[in-house]
Amino acid sequence: MNLFRLLGDMTHLLCIVVLLLKIRTRKSCAGISLKTQELYVIVFLTRYLDLFTMYNSLYQIVMKLVFVGTSIGIVWYMRYHKVVKQTYSKNEDTFRHYFLILPCFVLALFVHLDFTVVEVLWSFSLYLEAVAILPQLVLLQRSRNIDTLTGDYVFLLGVYRVLYLLNWVYRFFMEIHQIRWIPWVSGFIQTALYADFFYYYIKSWKNREKLKLPA
């Protein structure tokens, strides 16, 4: 475990806490894409199948349970909580995210480490996580005014991915000395999708103005 990876996991945890706080304290999920959150539930459930079979460390078990639990909790709030579900931007959150699931699954059937259920679903979850942010980014482009917590949430998600890239660079030179194509290529593509959001987020932060993404 290197510092980049620990910081990456902590940042990921932080952005989930920011989102849960926004939903619980403001009883609002305005500007948050339910489709992205649902994709994250699928990502975690398909990635952490080995939760009880492969023991890595207590840290892994706790973090996996937290990620699965919080992601399901967020979807529950947005779908079923009587107050929060009224604030869901249903009309703007129109990205057909089911069109993301099938291609990722087909790709996982062809590109995986082993043709076993765990490995194919593990690859599927990496490919799906790479594109899961798309509905959220599209929703941000459609939102007239993006509230700060939503912008912060997406920014922290991006920071977590950048830290994971740094973690892989570190592990390549210091530990593994070989390339892990599936997680690293998926992760690189995922991080690249945040590039223009980062540009507009940092620009709005520097100019002290409201975050606005071009449509």
């Binding site: 492969m54 996996k64 480490l113």
Partner: peptide
């Protein structure tokens, strides 16, 4: 082998 350790991250 290292590849099977590929699941050592979250």
């Amino acid at each position: 082998d290292p590849e099977s350790k590929a699941h050592d991250e979250l």
